[in-house]
């Protein structure tokens, strides 16, 4: 019932109903499909894709999630990926620093 209300707000500018459990799940699934597409195309920041890349996924995502949610998820994706990258770099440095200390010992 509420999911019908939710999907009826096509533009998702303002939620015309409260997203219920299934509406939330639909939104998260659409988000994951879109982000999965970005990953496949090695795009970190949503919106930086060109042409028809991930267009269908993005449209679906924006249809099933409120604009505020899209904005939130997109920002969080960038932050998360940056954090992952920093952690990976730190781990790499630790790994490359390992043998030197090993030689010293």
């Amino acid at each position: 019932m509420a999911s019908w209300l939710w999907s009826s707000s096509k533009t998702a500018e303002a939620p015309s109903g409260i997203p219920d459990r299934s509406a939330r799940q639909q939104c998260w699934d659409a988000r994951d499909r879109y982000f999965g597409c970005l990953d496949k195309n090695s795009i970190v920041v949503p919106g930086q894709e060109e042409g028809k890349t991930c267009k269908a996924e993005d449209t679906d995502y924006r249809k099933l999630c409120a604009a505020s949610w899209v904005e939130y998820f997109n920002k969080r994706r960038v932050l998360q990926l940056r954090q992952d990258l920093m952690e990976a770099k730190a781990a790499e440095q630790r790994a490359s620093g390992g043998p030197i200390t090993g030689v010293k010992a």
Binding site: I18, P19, R24, W28, C65, A66, S68, W69, Y72
Partner: peptide, 9 residues
């Protein structure tokens, strides 16, 4: 809040 994207649920 009810419009909470993911943390609250």
């Amino acid at each position: 809040f009810t419009n909470c994207p993911d943390i609250c649920p």
